[in-house]
Amino acid sequence: MIRLNNITKFYPSELGNQYIFKDLNFDIPGGHNIAILGSNGAGKSTLFKILAGSEYPNKGRVETDLHLSWPVALATGIHPQMTGAENARFIGMINGVEDLDLYVNKVRHFSGLEKKFDLPVRTYSSGMKPRLAFACSVGIDFDVYLIDEVTSVGDAKFREKAREALTQKSKTANVIMVSHEMDELRHFCDSAIVLHDGELTFYNDLEQGIARYQAL
């Protein structure tokens, strides 16, 4: 289980603080592959970043004993001055990977970056960075994979490769997924959380969650 304990998150603006969540308490149940649904601006990406620890709430905390990925398909934590290989080694190290050489080679192979893998990430195209981040993520055995629009990663061939890799991961781990593609959500997920007006509602049945989301 992942517990959101009294989470408040806002962003300052000229009109005052713009709240995404205010004193939010919610338990995300374990043992489910969950679709995160909500209108644009509802806070899906913010929730993902808070869960991943790449962004902090203004108040409250996330409590869990699970090992969560960063948002897969986003180049979160990739340093532009380091090479792909250096990024992979660093990410493996901070995530407790025992055999770093094996892990770096797995990332090299899966990313398909070839010689670019040994060049600084700042030289990469916009499509190469998420390929590196994705390969780094699926190379680690997380308890929960946070998946953000996986269909946007790389070209069609890589997207299919990514989809297959995540399908395999979802058999031994859980996924929490954001996507605007309902077919993609139906492929990976069995349940849903709908975000609306700063509140979260869990639906044990995915189709009920989709129906609620589409009715907003």
Rank of each mutant, 00 (worst) to 15 (best):
G112P: 08
L113M: 05
L113P: 02
E114N: 12
K115R: 12
K115V: 09
K116I: 00
F117H: 02
D118V: 03
L119E: 14
P120V: 00
P120T: 01
P120Q: 02
P120R: 00
V121G: 03
V121C: 05
V121L: 09
V121F: 10
R122N: 13
T123G: 03
Y124D: 00
Y124Q: 01
Y124M: 00
G127D: 03
K129T: 12
R131I: 08
L132C: 11
L132P: 04
L132H: 02
L132K: 04
F134W: 05
A135N: 06
S137H: 01
V138R: 02
V138K: 01
G139C: 06
I140A: 01
I140M: 01
I140V: 11
D141W: 09
D143F: 11
V144K: 10
L146P: 06
L146Q: 03
I147D: 04
I147K: 03
I147M: 12
D148E: 10
D148T: 14
D148F: 15
V150M: 13
V150E: 05
G154I: 12
G154A: 11
D155F: 12
D155W: 06
D155R: 06
A156P: 10
A156M: 07
K157M: 13
K157D: 14
F158L: 09
E160F: 09
E160T: 08
K161C: 05
K161R: 15
A162D: 04
R163V: 10
R163Y: 08
E164W: 11
E164G: 08
L166Q: 02
L166N: 04
T167D: 10
K169V: 13
S170Y: 07
S170C: 11
K171S: 11
K171Y: 09
K171N: 10
T172K: 15
A173F: 06
N174S: 15
N174Y: 13
V175F: 02
V175Q: 07
V175C: 15
M177I: 09
M177S: 07
S179N: 10
S179A: 06
S179I: 14
H180E: 04
H180V: 11
H180F: 06
M182F: 13
D183G: 11
D183M: 13
E184D: 02
E184N: 05
L185Q: 07
R186K: 15
R186T: 01
H187S: 05
H187M: 12
C189I: 14
D190C: 08
D190G: 14
S191Q: 07
S191Y: 09
A192Q: 10
A192H: 12
I193P: 03
I193C: 01
L195T: 11
L195Y: 08
H196A: 13
G198D: 06
E199W: 04
L200R: 02
L200I: 10
T201D: 00
F202P: 00
F202D: 03
Y203E: 07
Y203H: 15
N204C: 06
D205C: 11
L206A: 08
L206N: 00
L206F: 09
E207G: 04
E207K: 12
E207Q: 13
Q208T: 08
A211P: 00
Y213S: 03
Q214M: 14
Q214W: 05
L216A: 10
L216I: 13
